[in-house]
Amino acid sequence: MHNERRVDPVAAPEAVEALLAASRALVGIAARSLAETDPDVTLPQYRALVVLAARGPQRVAEVAAELQVATSTATRMCDRLVRKNLIRRSRPSSDRRVVRLTLTAAGRRLVHQVTEQRRVQLAAIVAETTGIWHPAVAPALRAFAAAAGEIPEHEWWLGFPSADDDEPRSA
Rank of each mutant, 00 (worst) to 15 (best):
T73G: 02
L103A: 07
P44N: 03
S162E: 12
L122R: 05
E150Q: 11
Q68A: 11
A123L: 01
V41W: 06
R108V: 10
A11Q: 03
T75L: 08
R59S: 01
R96E: 15
L122F: 07
V51E: 07
V7M: 00
Q58W: 03
L52T: 05
R119E: 09
D38E: 13
D79C: 06
A145Q: 12
G28M: 04
A145G: 15
V114A: 03
Q117I: 02
R88I: 07
A22N: 08
W133L: 10
D95K: 08
V10A: 01
V60E: 09
D8R: 00
R88E: 15
D164H: 14
R55V: 05
A15V: 10
S33E: 07
A35N: 08
L49F: 10
G28T: 10
R118Y: 07
A140C: 06
A106E: 15
W133T: 08
N3S: 06
E116C: 04
L19H: 13
H134Q: 03
D166C: 04
T115D: 13
T129E: 13
G149C: 04
A127Y: 14
L52W: 05
G149A: 03
A25G: 12
Q113D: 15
M77D: 07
E116K: 04
E14S: 06
G159R: 04
S162L: 04
L103C: 05
A148V: 01
H134E: 09
A136E: 09
P135C: 01
R100K: 03
V10D: 00
